[in-house]
Amino acid sequence: MSKVVELTKENFEAEVLKAEGLVMVDFWSQKCEPCKALMPSVHELVEKNEGKAKFCSLDTTNNKRLAINQKVLGLPTIAFYKNGEKIAELVKDFAIEDVQAKLNELA
């Protein structure tokens, strides 16, 4: 099983902003029902796309300031970073197919 890196304010910079290549970050929250509904699909996507990108997950519940700094204003949000820069983002009303398409486009 490919690993999804659990992000915190302590490791965000090292794991995402200083990472080489493509990084996908799933911003979610315990209180976000659409986030929780999407999670199994996100994990399947990670399995299918191993090697295309680094996959990370950030629970915004305890990392609100970090999410705001990354301009994440709605959940769920899937953001794509390359060389420390956010290059694409899917917010709220998206399907897992949209995530796969964006990953294919960027990878």
Rank of each mutant, 00 (worst) to 15 (best):
Q30W: 14
L45H: 00
L22R: 05
L90Y: 03
W28Y: 06
L22E: 03
K86S: 08
V16R: 01
V42A: 03
K54T: 05
S29R: 12
P40S: 09
H43I: 02
G84L: 11
L45G: 00
N83D: 14
K3I: 13
V25C: 02
A14Y: 11
T60Q: 09
I96P: 07
K18C: 08
L17Q: 09
T61I: 14
A107Q: 12
I68S: 14
Y81I: 06
E47D: 07
T8W: 11
E97H: 12
A79I: 05
W28M: 10
F27Q: 01
V16F: 04
L75C: 03
K3L: 13
T8R: 13
G51F: 03
A101D: 12
R65S: 15
T77S: 07
R65L: 15
C32S: 11
F12V: 09
W28I: 03
D98G: 09
N104I: 10
M39L: 04
A79V: 05
E47K: 02
L66V: 10
T60C: 10
Y81D: 04
G51D: 02
V4A: 07
C35T: 02
Y81M: 06
A95C: 11
C32M: 12
S29A: 15
N62F: 15
V25P: 04
E20R: 14
N69I: 11
A88D: 04
V25Q: 00
E13I: 10
P76I: 05
R65K: 15
E85G: 11
E6H: 15
C32W: 10
D98T: 04
E20S: 12
A95E: 10
R65E: 15
V99Q: 00
L38P: 02
A101W: 12
K18V: 12
Q70L: 10
C56K: 01
V5F: 06
E97G: 14
E89I: 01
Y81L: 08
K86M: 14
R65W: 14
S29Q: 15
D26M: 03
M39H: 01
N69L: 13
Q30H: 15
G51Y: 00
E33R: 13
M24Y: 03
E10A: 15
A101H: 14
E89V: 03
K71I: 14
E10Y: 11
E15G: 02
F80K: 06
L75N: 04
L17V: 10
K48S: 08
E97F: 13
F80R: 05
D59H: 09
E105V: 10
T77G: 06
S41K: 07
F55R: 00
V46K: 00
A79L: 08
F55L: 00
